[in-house]
């Protein structure tokens, strides 16, 4: 197996003076499933476009599988698979025609690498004579992944592959990524969904063109410096305001129908808060201690950036 790691050193990219990437550095291991987690506009797509030789960085160096993205861009185009965030296959060609086209322009055939895409492609094979434009969102993603895989790439870049895909298909998709990873392919994947972070080997949390932290999902969670309470009550709007004013509270974020309240140490007594909310006429108050999720960590890092960890 070739060295399929990706090294990025101090990469910066600006668009008309607005920084899209601000001094980004990271290294991935061989055969790692590396996730970039961050909201829209964090710079994930820009980073992927630079790594896939579609965009030139203003400064900094990147190598993909040992090849420089500027000097050896031709070599990179032979060993990379890229799945853009937007569906970019020919909608007026059928499933099979798309796959065959991408196989042939890489100088290979479907038969030769069928084993690589078999798991994924089998699911859409019944529709192989259907035009790609008429597939459902999940099937489109499977086809796009098949097309990105058909030339047996060493490194796979997946830009928000699960955006706009239903929950069931998302789970399926991540299962497929796991299997691909096991066959030794290095996978870089970006997603705005925090819950997907736990499925990666390591994640980089990104915000405003910067990487806030890089570590395993477990480490991200264990390095969360605060304690967390999940608070539930009828009137979530009033609840948020009152909790923010509560003494000792570090931050309050709404997570669906509950509020996550963070504080340092053991300053807050659950019973005390319960009584306080009761006295403020909140109905059906529930308070429980919870473990932080990646999203809690992300919120904390976003608002209180610590020195970037290196490992």
């Amino acid at each position: 197996m070739a060295i399929a790691s990706v090294h990025v050193h101090q990469v910066t990219k600006q668009f008309n003076g607005t920084p899209a990437l601000d001094n980004i550095s990271f290294d991935t291991g061989n055969g790692e499933l590396f996730g970039f987690i961050g909201p829209d506009g964090a710079g994930k797509t820009t980073l992927f476009r630079i790594l896939t030789t579609l965009l030139l960085a203003d400064s900094g160096t990147c190598t993909v599988a040992g090849y420089d993205v500027v000097k050896d861009y031709k070599a990179i185009r032979n060993i990379c698979g890229y799945m853009p965030g937007r569906f970019s296959l020919y909608q007026d060609l059928t499933v099979e025609e798309n796959l065959r086209f991408f196989a042939t322009i890489f100088g290979t055939t479907i038969d030769e690498n069928y084993h690589l895409v078999k798991d994924i492609y089998q699911q859409i094979e019944p529709f192989r004579n259907r035009k790609a434009g008429q597939l459902s969102g999940g099937m489109k993603q499977k086809l796009a992944l098949s097309c990105a895989m058909i030339h047996k790439p060493d490194v796979l870049f997946l830009d928000e592959p699960t955006t706009g895909v239903d929950a069931v298909s998302r789970v399926e998709f991540w299962d497929m990524l796991k299997r691909l990873k096991n066959s030794g392919i290095t996978i870089l994947v970006s997603t705005p969904y925090m819950d997907e972070a736990g499925l990666c080997d390591r994640v980089a949390l990104m915000q405003n063109g910067r990487i806030m932290t890089i570590s395993t999902p477990g480490e991200v969670i264990s390095s969360y410096p605060l304690s967390l309470l999940s608070v539930k009550a009828g009137d979530i709007y009033r609840l948020l305001g009152e909790l923010r004013a509560y003494p000792g509270v570090h931050s309050v974020y709404a997570f669906g129908q509950t509020a996550h309240v963070s504080f340092s140490g053991q300053q807050i007594e659950r019973q005390q808060m319960f009584d306080f909310l009761k006295s403020n006429n909140h109905a059906s108050v529930e308070i429980s201690v919870i473990e932080p999720s990646i999203e809690d960590c992300f919120m904390e890092l976003m608002n209180n950036p610590v020195e970037k960890q290196t490992n």
């Binding site: 569906f87 970019s88 322009i105 100088g107």
Partner: peptide
Amino acid sequence: IGTIEQINVTPIN
């Protein structure tokens, strides 16, 4: 349509 993106990362010159 964006298909150029996919073409551009291939070895097609």
